[in-house]
Design a protein around this nucleic acid. Structure first.
Lengths: 219, 219
DNA sequence: ACAAAAGTGTTTCAAATACACCCATGT
DNA sequence: ACATGGGTGTATTTGAAACACTTTTGT
């Protein structure tokens, strides 16, 4: 029986937010080799006593200061040669950050941390461009059959904000009346009774994520 | 900067087939510790110069002799403590085997290899019960929006065989007329012009996977 | 003739789509 | 009064679901 070859295990996070109608992803400028100075997904080596998800969240906070509002495993990438340091396998996570102002704090392995519009990404280290593409595909797909979009919004939000988020992710406009009909029909949001007056126009009703856990599918 | 802790990386395959209207998964009886004698998914350690998918396919063949007709990455599992030998992370794959007679050849780390109905699984090593549950969820979900079920059939097959496969995976019967309407409407299969005479009843038309690559979604 | 699986259409219902105007507020 | 985004309803089309009988073969 061959002796098992150890590999380095890392996690990487593709964290998205929607800001001013644009879908953005969080990147760091790498401080160290390999790819020093290059933009990359925040991530790092797995430590002995943490789960994969804990590692992803920890590295994200260490490198960017961003605490994600949602994190799910995306996929793993382990082609030989993806990392010039040697054999590494990375477990990639898809993260979402609700759109509330928060300063970025680059630290640790990161020289800088910035949000980039997914429509104009810089060239990326490792296979991170591929990971982001896969994350986007997943995000767009889940939009239609889950309440994942709510994670990109604050606790209370008008329906127009939810529609903006969906449009930013899908990259095309949606019909307002059909959108509201569908969202309310799904029962994933509920009226708070409160309303938001903001700007020189009619105030918007505020909604929150419904307390019913998960999506109900009958039959 | 902390020194990265190496971890052992393995792959495991949950390979399914449909046999006599029952969905089955391929398991091995482990020859070595830990969990010696226990049933487990076929899998093993990643070697230096192979991709994750190559590792999954290689270990599967080594341990069971089964060459899968389809293999896709499922998810990764790396909780500390999932393996008594030390820190391991496994990349799990979902595999499918078309229903053509083939003998199993237990070898290598496997004392025995057998197909088990998913409805009556033995107790399993590591977190493999969880992996199988996740694989089943994925398989059922993809049934409705992909041509994955065709991988469980030989190259040419009657529509009734496809229906049987779908029913075995979903665990409930389907309406024959609606099923055929949907399948033919999707365009994922095409008529071969040939027909299969078998048994004392009307011969069935044979179909094959359509040559059009992928699933077309318009609009 | 009978057994056994193959093959075939229509009606009903639910959901998705397309589409345009009035409402409440601030200036 | 007007500018700005908030909020609402209906008609049409499309796809899903329910449902039963005739056909072709082997024995």
């Amino acid at each position: 029986m061959p002796i098992p070859t150890p590999a380095m295990v890392t996690t990487d996070c593709a964290v998205f937010r929607v800001s001013e109608h644009k879908l953005e992803v969080l990147l760091i400028a790498r401080a160290n080799a390999p790819f020093a100075g290059c933009w990359a997904l925040p991530g790092g080596f797995l430590e002995p006593d943490e789960t994969l998800a804990e590692c992803a969240a920890r590295e994200l906070v260490e490198e960017t200061g961003v605490v994600p509002d949602y994190l799910e495993q995306l996929a793993s990438y382990g082609d030989p040669g993806r990392d010039p340091r040697g054999r590494t396998v990375t477990i990639a996570y898809l993260g979402l950050k609700s759109d509330t102002a928060q300063s970025l704090a680059a630290a640790d392995d990161a020289a800088d941390a910035r949000w980039f519009a997914v429509s104009s990404l810089p060239s990326l280290a490792f296979d991170h461009a591929r990971i982001i593409a896969d994350a986007l595909t997943r995000l767009r797909a889940k939009l239609s059959y889950s309440s994942i979009a709510l994670k990109l919004l604050p606790a209370e939000f008008p329906l127009s904000a939810l529609q903006n988020v969906c449009e930013a992710i899908l990259g095309h406009p949606l019909d307002k009346r059909n959108f509201r009909k569908q969202i309310l029909g799904l029962g994933v949001v509920e009226d708070t009774g409160r309303r938001q007056r903001l700007g020189q126009h009619r105030p918007a009703m505020l909604y929150r994520a419904a307390t019913t856990r998960g999506i109900q599918i009958f039959r």
